Amino acid sequence: MTTHSIAGKTVLITGGAKNLGGMIACDLARQGAKTIIIHYHSPAGEADAQATLKAVRTVGSHALAIQADLTQPGSIAELFEKTVEATEGLDIAINTVGKVLKKPIADTTDEEFDAMFAVNTKVAFQFIREAGKHLNDNGKLLSIVTSLLGAYTPFYSTYAGSKAAVEHFTRAASKELGARGISVNAIGPGPMDTPFFYGQEAPEAVAYHKTAAALSSFSHTGLTDVEDIVPHVRFMVSDGWWMTGQTILVNGGYTTK
C-alpha cells in the first residue's frame, strides 16, 4: 500500500528561508521529513536560510540551502538537478515564491508587467514542469497562489492575473501526472501578516483587510496568519493527496469561489 506520510520524505521548498516557506520547512521537519532543500533568492537571504537550516536540523532532518535567482534561464532545472543529486530522490515540491504589485492598470508599466509575470507565472510554470520531471512516483506538488483569485477588486490586476495562470497549470499538470500517483494542487492564502503584505498597502487599506474576513476577529492580527496556512500545506502534501487539480482558498472567509 502506498504511504502518504511525510516521514522519511525529501522536500524542496522555494522561498524556504523565511516567512511562510521557512515555517513550512520547520513544520515538515517536525513531521519527520528526511531531507529538506531550502531555496533562497539572493545572498541577502543567506542569514535567514542558515537560521532555518539550523531549526530544521535541530528536530532531526537533514537540510541543504541553495541560492538561485529563479528568473534566470536554466536556474529552476539546475535547482531540481542539485536537489536530486544531493538526495535519494524528490518526494514533495512546494513553490512559495511570489511578487506583488498594487497599482491601477493605467499606471502599470510594461516593465512592471513583465516582472510580475516572470516571477508569478513563468517561474511557477517552470517549477511545475521540472517537478513533473524529477518527482518520484506518488509525489506531491504544491504551489502558493493568492485568495485574490476569488476577489472582485481593482489595483491587483498583474498580481492576481499572473497567479491565475497557475490555477490552470495546476489542473493540467494534475491530469498529466496523475497516472504516476502525483497530486498537484495550489493554496491561495488571504492577506498574510508578513512584510510581503505591508509593503503594498496604505494604513487605511491595512485596516480594511484586518476586518474583511469572516473570521478576522479570531485572528490575533485580523489577517491570515502564517500559522493558519501551514497545517493546510501539511495536509495537501500528505493525507490530502486524493484532492488533486484544485486551488484551495485558505483565508478565514476573506474571499470565496
Rank of each mutant, 00 (worst) to 15 (best):
M1A: 13
T2E: 14
T3H: 12
H4P: 00
G8I: 12
K9M: 08
T10N: 15
I13Q: 09
G15N: 13
A17M: 07
L20F: 05
L20W: 00
G21D: 06
G21S: 03
G22Y: 03
M23A: 14
A25L: 01
A25Y: 01
A25M: 01
A25E: 02
C26S: 10
L28R: 04
L28S: 05
A29D: 10
A29T: 07
A29W: 10
R30I: 04
A33R: 05
T35V: 10
T35S: 15
T35G: 06
H39G: 11
H41T: 11
A51D: 12
T52I: 06
K54D: 12
A55P: 02
V56D: 02
V56I: 09
S61I: 04
H62W: 08
L64G: 03
A65Y: 06
I76Y: 04
E78K: 15
E78I: 01
L79P: 08
F80A: 06
E81K: 14
A86V: 02
T87M: 05
E88N: 13
L90F: 01
T96Y: 03
V97C: 14
V97R: 04
V97A: 12
V100Y: 02
V100G: 03
P104S: 06
P104K: 04
P104R: 05
I105N: 04
A106S: 15
D107I: 01
D110H: 10
D114L: 10
D114I: 04
D114W: 00
A115N: 12
A118C: 07
T121H: 07
A124Y: 02
F125H: 12
I128R: 00
G132L: 00
L141T: 12
L142N: 07
S143V: 08
S143H: 14
I144L: 13
S147Y: 02
L148K: 12
G150W: 09
Y152S: 15
F155W: 14
Y156Q: 06
Y159N: 07
A165H: 11
F169A: 10
R171Y: 12
R171E: 09
A173F: 08
K175F: 13
R180C: 09
G181P: 13
S183N: 15
S183P: 06
V184C: 12
N185Q: 12
I187H: 02
G188E: 09
P191E: 01
P191G: 01
D193P: 00
F196S: 01
F196P: 00
Y198W: 13
G199S: 09
E201L: 15
E204L: 06
E204M: 08
A205V: 08
T211K: 15
T211E: 13
A212V: 02
S216R: 09
D225F: 01
E227D: 15
I229T: 03
I229L: 11
F235Y: 15
M236C: 10
M236N: 02
V237A: 05
V237I: 08
S238V: 07
S238T: 06
G240R: 05
G240H: 04
W241I: 07
W241C: 12
W242N: 10
T247S: 12
I248Q: 13
I248C: 11
V250W: 01
N251I: 01
T256L: 08
T256Q: 07
K257S: 13
